[in-house]
Design a protein around this nucleic acid. Structure first.
Length: 628
DNA sequence: ATTAGGG
DNA sequence: CCCTAAT
């Protein structure tokens, strides 16, 4: 009923500028001063700034392609995840405690840039949630920005509790591989902070965020790969000088690195050990292997060994083995396990060299959150094999036996195609610490990156890293990964020790196509609470346009906020009306000024009335209500 | 593609 | 926010 009502609305008198949104071109509408009245002009801030810093970084490898630099993090470690798990006879795992240990170890890797994620309380609530709810959340070390040109150890990126990414990148020697043709950060998204419009030079269409699995788009936003990339048998010409030559070099060097990296693998913790990394490539899939480590110290230091209910502490127990022995002795008791950290797979980031540090931060943030986002499942490995039967008790499985315990490992398995499998690095310190934990699934979202790499001939399948679910270009709208929800959820799941139906190491490697099905599943967009400014804009637009013209409202007031669809606006209005009607005590989230809520009610009442009796001419008095 | 509403 | 039905 709104199709031809432009004239009617005109008559209302207060629909001045945006009244004919239906017909006028967008530009006309958006240019209307009234729309900017509430400060919207600033909403359309550009994401791309001119201040660029990347190009100044050493070790930057850029291909002639364009202006995008790619940063590859060979692996990401979620350090500081110190969760103690108490296992009872029923195989129920509980995360007893999660401490926040931010571990930033960059000293060893002077050549690499460091990024640190730290909390920023000033951030929007939603934003904060991304990490505050991440169980692993307290601290995350993203290790290694591997330099493709040399085998330097990776730098560490420490991700602290919440949201904001601050980077001190004196240098970003990481692997900067290629540039995209448009100088657009591949991994970019609307900035949450300014939810309004970051105008992305590319792909402004909202619908584009529905990623298609791998269809030729050269701009791959993110690339995630395991740092344990299989050393492909076929080492084809890595020296090709095609656009992806850099990539190839990177991968090649990476391969070499793997062998040496094991010892320095972003594992700040002394006792940590990484065992053989083995990866198997199954057609398109990249498979990784991670080590498992077990921290004996924790046993001691944290009274984990002795404290658990049902266990009598033995102060004299100096090692894990001791603990385990004890466990053995007290059958039917508890098994104390401590997972010290989870390693996140390699991250591939591509940003234009003209990208600002800020965008780089966001990019890294996106990559990290993307990894952490999505549902996570826990996989349990014993002796390198995955334990699938959830019903078995630890005792039955043999986890209570010391020798078995030594080979016990966990993996974080991203459920959605979007996230990468996070390798849980947990190994037992025992003398037999040579167990390899094959990383399970590889999120095969055959994203663009895939295409690109493939297109570049030489890339080995293993190196066809999957992107973070989708290239960010198309993912702007859903860019910020739903870390909080996802991770939170994942943790819940982890408590239950969800076992994925996969078996042998070999089987554990899920072929891409299989996962691709999953990748098709559209992920729920992250929640992005409306800011007061947005509400203000919405209210004003609705006052002008009415409640039945969401498309116009969108164009008028949120044309630059690509992540806000007219449906979103409609929904928001719905909630606003509801919010305005309930008592302030019942309201949640960022409080909306009462003044705005009042306007919401007035506007809503007004337009409802108009709808009821559209034939009726507007009374001059009603206009006064909206005169501002 | 939009709009309206329920979930 | 998502999903669907109806336009």
């Amino acid at each position: 009923m709104s199709s031809d009502t432009s004239s009617e609305k005109d008559q209302s008198g207060f629909v001045k500028e945006c009244q004919d949104a239906n017909k006028p071109s967008k530009s006309v509408i958006s240019d209307e001063g009234s729309c900017d009245k509430s400060g919207f002009s600033r909403l359309s801030s550009q994401t791309n700034n001119k201040n660029c810093g990347l190009k100044e970084f050493p070790h930057l490898a850029i291909d002639g392609d364009a202006g995008t630099a790619s940063i590859v993090t060979s692996s990401t470690c979620l350090e500081g995840f110190i969760a103690e798990k108490l296992v009872d006879g029923n195989s129920h795992f509980k995360v007893e405690n999660v401490t926040s240990t931010v571990n930033l170890d960059s000293s060893d890797y002077p050549k690499h840039s460091n990024f640190k994620l730290h909390g920023d309380t000033s951030k929007g609530k939603d934003e904060l949630h991304k990490f505050e709810k991440v169980p692993i959340g307290s601290g995350i070390d993203m290790c290694s920005f591997e330099d493709p040109l040399d085998d330097n150890p990776p730098a560490l990126i420490s991700l602290g509790g919440n949201a904001k990414l601050s980077g001190y990148n004196d240098r970003i020697p990481c692997s900067l591989l290629s540039k995209s043709r448009d100088n657009v950060p591949v991994v970019s998204r609307d900035d949450d902070e300014n939810s309004y419009g970051c105008t992305h030079p590319i792909n402004t269409k909202t619908k584009s965020f529905r990623l298609k699995t791998g269809i030729g788009d050269n701009r791959i936003s993110k690339r995630l790969a395991s740092n344990f990339q299989k050393v492909a048998e076929k080492t084809k010409d890595h020296t090709h000088s095609n656009n992806d030559g850099d990539w190839k070099r990177t991968y090649c060097s990476k391969r070499n690195c793997n062998k040496h990296q094991s010892s320095q693998m972003n594992i700040p913790f002394k006792k940590r050990k990484l065992f053989n990394y083995r990866s198997v490539s199954n057609s398109n899939e990249l498979i990784r292997s991670g080590g498992i480590y077990y921290s004996p110290e924790n046993c001691m230091n944290q009274d984990g060994c002795g404290s658990p209910p049902g266990m009598h502490k033995d102060p004299g127990m100096p090692s894990l083995e001791a603990c385990q022995h004890q466990t053995l002795r007290s059958r039917g008791s508890h098994v104390n396990l401590r997972i010290k950290s989870f390693r996140v797979p390699e991250l591939f980031i591509e940003v234009p060299e003209t990208a600002t540090i800020g965008s780089l931060k966001r990019t890294v943030m996106d990559a990290v959150t993307a990894v952490l986002g999505g549902e996570l499942h826990i996989g349990v490995f014993l002796q390198g094999k995955k334990v699938k039967d959830d019903s078995k008790t630890l005792l039955q499985t043999g986890i209570s036996h010391q020798n078995e315990l030594d080979a016990l490992g966990f993996t974080l398995e991203p459920n959605s195609s979007q996230s990468l499998p996070i390798v849980c690095a947990a190994h037992s310190p025992g003398p037999k610490a040579d167990i390899t934990q094959p990383v399970i699934r590889y999120p095969s979202s055959p994203a663009v990156i895939h295409q690109r790499i493939q297109g570049n001939s030489d890339m080995l399948p293993e190196h066809q890293v999957t992107s973070l679910g989708s290239h960010f270009e198309n993912d702007h709208d859903s860019a910020p990964s739903p870390v909080n929800a996802s991770v939170e959820k994942g943790m819940k799941d982890s408590k239950e020790l969800v076992t994925v139906p996969e078996m042998d190491e070999e089987l554990a490697m899920v072929p891409v196509h299989q996962k691709s099905k999953r990748s098709e599943i559209v992920q729920r967009r992250i929640r992005r609470p409306f800011s007061v400014d947005e509400v203000e804009a919405l209210v004003q637009a609705v006052e002008k346009l009415g409640t039945g013209r969401w498309r116009d409202v969108k164009v008028c007031a949120f044309d630059n906020a690509k992540h806000r669809t007219y449906v979103d606006l409609k929904d928001k209005w719905k909630t606003l009306v509801h919010t305005a009607r309930i008592s302030p005590q019942q309201r949640r989230g960022e409080p909306v000024p009462q003044e705005l809520l009042d306007r919401v009610l007035v506007a809503h009442a007004y337009w409802s009335h108009q709808q009821t009796k559209p034939q009726h001419k507007h009374h001059p008095e009603t206009e006064t209500v909206f005169s501002f």
